[in-house]
Amino acid sequence: MGMNMGSGIGRRGGSRGRAPMAEINVTPFVDVMLVLLIIFMVTAPLLVTGVPVDLPESRANALEQEQEPVQISIDTEGRVFVDDEELSRGALESRLRDIAAEQDPEDPRQIMLRGDKTLDYGLIMGVMGELNRAGLSRVSLVTTGSSETP
Rank of each mutant, 00 (worst) to 15 (best):
I24N: 04
L141C: 03
D116L: 04
R12C: 08
N61G: 14
S88P: 02
L87W: 01
R95F: 01
G50Q: 06
E57V: 08
V32E: 08
I124H: 06
E23D: 15
R138C: 04
I39N: 00
D83H: 05
L34W: 08
M128W: 00
P28E: 08
T144K: 12
G17Y: 00
G145L: 00
G13Y: 00
T144L: 09
I99Y: 02
Q103K: 02
E57N: 10
K117A: 13
A22I: 12
G14I: 08
G135H: 03
R97Q: 12
S88G: 13
L55M: 12
M112C: 14
V142G: 03
A60I: 10
G13M: 01
P105F: 05
E66M: 11
A101E: 11
A60P: 02
N25L: 08
F81N: 00
D84I: 07
V30G: 01
R79Q: 14
R138K: 14
I124L: 15
Q67E: 12
R109L: 10
R16G: 15
A134C: 04
Q71I: 14
G14V: 09
I72W: 07
V30D: 03
V42W: 01
S58P: 01
M125R: 13
S147W: 04
E106R: 11
I24A: 08
G17D: 06
G90C: 04
G17F: 02
P150G: 12
Q103D: 04
L34E: 08
V53C: 04
P150Q: 07
S58V: 07
A101Y: 07
I99K: 02
E106Y: 05
E66P: 01
R16F: 10
D54R: 14
P108I: 00
A44V: 04
E93A: 13
V48K: 14
S146F: 10
I74W: 01
G126F: 03
G129W: 03
F40S: 10
G145H: 04
P52N: 12
N25D: 15
V30S: 07
E86D: 07
L123E: 10
R138T: 07
L34G: 00
M112H: 15
I24Y: 07
L113A: 02
